[in-house]
Amino acid sequence: MFSDKKEKSMNEPTTGQNRINEGTKLKGDIQSQGFFRIDGTIEGNVNTPSKVVIGKSGFINGTLTCENADIEGRFEGELQVSGTLSLKETAHIEGQVVAGKLAVEPGATFNATCSMKGSTKKNLGANTNSTVEKDIKGQNHPFDRSQRIQSVKAESKTE
Rank of each mutant, 00 (worst) to 15 (best):
R37C: 09
I93P: 02
E12V: 09
G100W: 10
T65K: 11
I71T: 07
I71S: 07
K88Y: 07
D39I: 10
Q33F: 07
N61A: 02
T48E: 07
R19A: 14
F59A: 08
G100S: 08
E22S: 15
G44E: 01
G23E: 04
P49F: 14
V97Q: 00
Q80N: 15
H92G: 07
K8L: 11
N18W: 01
G28W: 00
E43A: 05
T41K: 07
N18D: 06
T14Q: 04
I30W: 00
K27F: 03
I20P: 04
G23L: 06
D29H: 07
S50F: 04
E43F: 09
K27L: 03
K8T: 08
T48D: 10
K8M: 08
V97D: 00
V81C: 13
A99Q: 07
Q31H: 12
S86V: 12
N21D: 12
R19W: 08
G23V: 10
K51Q: 12
L26S: 00
F75W: 01
I54G: 05
K56F: 08
I93D: 00
F35A: 10
R37S: 11
E94L: 05
E78W: 00
G58T: 04
A99E: 11
F59R: 11
K8S: 14
T15Y: 05
G23A: 08
N21F: 09
S86C: 04
E67W: 08
Q96E: 08
D39H: 07
G58W: 03
S32P: 01
G95L: 01
L79N: 09
T48I: 13
T84H: 14
R37I: 12
T65P: 02
S9H: 13
Q17F: 09
D70H: 11
G16Y: 09
G40V: 03
E72W: 12
K88T: 01
G73N: 12
F35P: 03
N61C: 00
V97S: 00
T24G: 03
R19K: 14
G23R: 10
N61T: 02
E22A: 15
V46K: 10
Q31E: 12
G77Y: 00
I71E: 04
L87W: 01
R37W: 05
T65L: 06
V53W: 02
N61Q: 03
G77H: 01
N47M: 08
E22Q: 15
I54A: 03
T63G: 03
V81P: 15
E67V: 15
E89G: 08
